[in-house]
Amino acid sequence: MNETPLAKPAAAWPMYRALVGIGMLCGLLIVFVYAGTRPVIEANRAAALERAVFAVLPAATTRRTFVLTAEGGFERTAETRGELIHAGFDQAGTLVGVAIEASGMGYADTIGLLYGYAPERDAIVGMQVLTSKETPGLGNKIETDPDFLANFDALDVRLDDSGTSVLNPIETVKQGKKTDAWQLDGITGATVSSKAIGNILAASSSRWVPLIKQRRADLDAGVINEGS
């Protein structure tokens, strides 16, 4: 019986050499470009954040950044890292709201957003998506759908009697089924993405709203101490 001769196996070394060598070259290229573009990208992001703060707090004319201290209070800071919130003040120096960054898992990747919380109204009064890779044409409606964005005209986040937790956590309902002020009208065709926004806001507001309410004086003092 004749046996079919096996094909001679390819030499492994040239394959390792090509893959590892080109992999290293590509890695070096990426690191080099990343290091070169990082300062510019960070400056762009800072400028975009500045614009977004005034978009989610339209009544604000100035903003100041505060960091959450280990004691649970707020301090003025010029840092860009840490647990930061951006307080917006009107021309008279009165606090009109606080812009808070939040993020969470969407359909495709992490969604980063900024929302404005107005302590006087006990409500979220604006929201802008900062980073998103949701499906173009479907998931990215969270940034463009006017009916969805109308949810953030006044989204109720009032606290319970103890003042330590949100009375009615934000929840996302099917499009057109919103009945209460703390509900988000979802988007048909972008169900996962619109639910993700609701979940991100629910988690973030349940943490930040009680803190801001309790330490509101820190934010006011930050302006008074500065003398502006």
Binding site: T37, I41, N44, R45, A47, K133
Partner: peptide, 14 residues
């Protein structure tokens, strides 16, 4: 992303 954040956002995942 370095040239324009808005353009980067408009092109998105593409």
């Amino acid at each position: 992303e370095a040239i324009s954040l808005d353009l980067h956002k408009a092109l998105g995942a593409f």
